[in-house]
Amino acid sequence: MRVLLPLLFLLSAPAMADSRMEAAPLANVQLKDPAQERQAKALMETIRCLVCQGQSIADSDAEMAGDMRSMIRERIEKGEQPEAIRKWLITRYGDWVTYEPPLSSTTLFLWSLPALLLMAGGALALGRIRRKR
């Protein structure tokens, strides 16, 4: 798919040395309730890892991603809504932290892009159709 040379170079940089601590309690352990775990997992897949930047925290080996996973699982377990947690993170890290661009005046263009392109292209193609007499 790419010149997909997976260099986790940020991870191996010295500044990102690992601590000697174990992973946070729920970093790599699922919630008991499968419905809650599904909610947590869906949220984690859309939160961008701050250390290894090109991945979601669900796919990252970075310790901070593990800490964030653990935090998300704990808060979901306590009954918090995933969107509330996303909002909480956005207040701290800005829109950057979510892979799901929130609907705003700037992203409205992005979300309407498929429809816009379909209409423009469709109009162009219609011009080439032979009309029935």
Partner: peptide, 14 residues
């Protein structure tokens, strides 16, 4: 801060 909880709540990334 053993599980980076306070760090995250400050919006700090490392």
């Amino acid at each position: 801060d053993v599980s980076s909880r306070v760090q995250i709540s400050f919006g700090s990334s490392g």
